[in-house]
């Protein structure tokens, strides 16, 4: 059977190297080469892609953001010089994680995982912990890809299965739970003030007592958000 693959890497030499090693795997057909995350997302929506060779550090979108934006899950082999993303890669259900420069034997092993649907090798113990928070949120807005840097986010509200992200007077819907988004945001800048809302700390102008132990937050742009009892405790803990 043929494996239809695309190669996503911004460095021409890196793409060339992979393509050359793939010549030893006639069952792998390279449908396209993408130079950045946008092209990759587009290629996956337009082409019958079975397998993704994905770099992590790229212009526009990084590898993880690409996976987040795909219409459908595609088996992915990460190909990167960075070993510190391994844990995140397997959390994203990567098939394998190749460290540049890799050998053709190592590539063959990764491809065989596709054939056998073998579980990825457990390299978690040797991988460096990856504890950085996301610094931007990516989502699809119709055909467009929207990237919101974390410092542009004013607040985020839960709406059923979606979160609505408010930035510069606009809001964008993303299919994600507030709780999972909260985990990925830096708690030094974001705070869950209510079951249904996360606010960026520097956007909170003041906190008002509405009635006995019912508080609201008033943001710099005038928005008012409810504060729950536990939210108020967290706020007090943060603001002293």
């Amino acid at each position: 059977m043929t494996i239809r693959a695309i190669i996503v890497d911004d460095e021409p030499l890196a793409r060339q190297y992979l393509r050359e090693l793939l010549e030893g795997h006639p069952e792998v057909e390279v449908l396209a080469e993408c130079r950045n995350g946008f092209e990759a997302v587009k290629a996956v929506s337009e082409l019958p892609v079975d397998l993704l060779f994905l770099d992590i550090q790229m212009p526009k979108l990084d590898g993880f953001e690409v996976l987040e934006l795909l219409d459908r899950p595609v088996p992915t082999i990460f190909v990167t010089a960075y070993d510190e993303y391994a844990v995140r890669a397997f959390d994203a259900h990567a098939l394998d994680y190749l460290l540049k420069p890799y050998t053709k034997e190592r590539l063959a092993e990764a491809i065989s995982r596709f054939h056998h649907k073998a579980p990825p090798p457990d390299i978690r113990s040797s991988a460096r912990p990856e504890s950085t928070y996301v610094t931007r949120i990516v989502m699809k807005d119709g055909p467009d890809i929207v990237i919101i840097p974390d410092h542009d986010i004013d607040y985020i509200q839960a709406e059923d299965d979606y979160v609505s992200i408010h930035t510069k007077g606009k809001s964008f819907l993303k299919h994600q739970t507030l709780a999972s988004l909260e985990e990925s945001l830096d708690p030094a800048h974001f705070i869950r003030i209510h079951r249904s809302a996360i606010a960026r700390l520097d956007r909170i102008k003041r906190i008002e007592l509405l009635t006995k132990d019912r508080y609201i937050a008033i943001l710099v742009d005038g928005t008012t958000l409810p504060i729950s009892r536990s939210g108020h405790r967290r706020l007090k803990g943060l603001l002293g």
Binding site: L13, A14, E20, Q57, A81, L99
Partner: peptide, 18 residues
């Protein structure tokens, strides 16, 4: 940065044949 080294080595690996 070690990544600079690894990426450069990867480029060398790509260039050796071509």
């Amino acid at each position: 940065n070690p990544h600079f080294l690894f990426n450069s080595l990867n480029a060398i690996a790509a260039l050796t044949s071509t």
